[in-house]
Amino acid sequence: MDKIELKNLLFLARISADEKEHPKIIEKLQNTFNLIDEMQDLDLSNLEPLNNPLELNNVSREDVNKNRNSKNEFLDNSPESDKDYFLVPKIIE
């Protein structure tokens, strides 16, 4: 992993880190990948990936309304809101 990759990664994950810290972060990540990379030697081309241990059919629900809205509580829980909306710094498109 190099510096450019890390910068891209930090951006995708929306995490900021001081440039001075970058080498240390790269080293930490690299250490973990050294552990992970042990699996690269396994030839598993004949295996299907397993996403979920219970290979069951998904359930669905009936299309029936249930009201669990509590607008005021939701808005009160947010860092910034007015009486109707969640507020964020102006998004410039």
């Binding site: 969640f86 964020v88 710094p89 102006k90």
Partner: peptide
């Protein structure tokens, strides 16, 4: 939906 006209320096979110 995010809307940008209600405040000068804020956008508002309606979910």
């Amino acid at each position: 939906k995010s809307m940008h006209d209600k405040y000068d320096n804020k956008s508002v979110i309606d979910l």
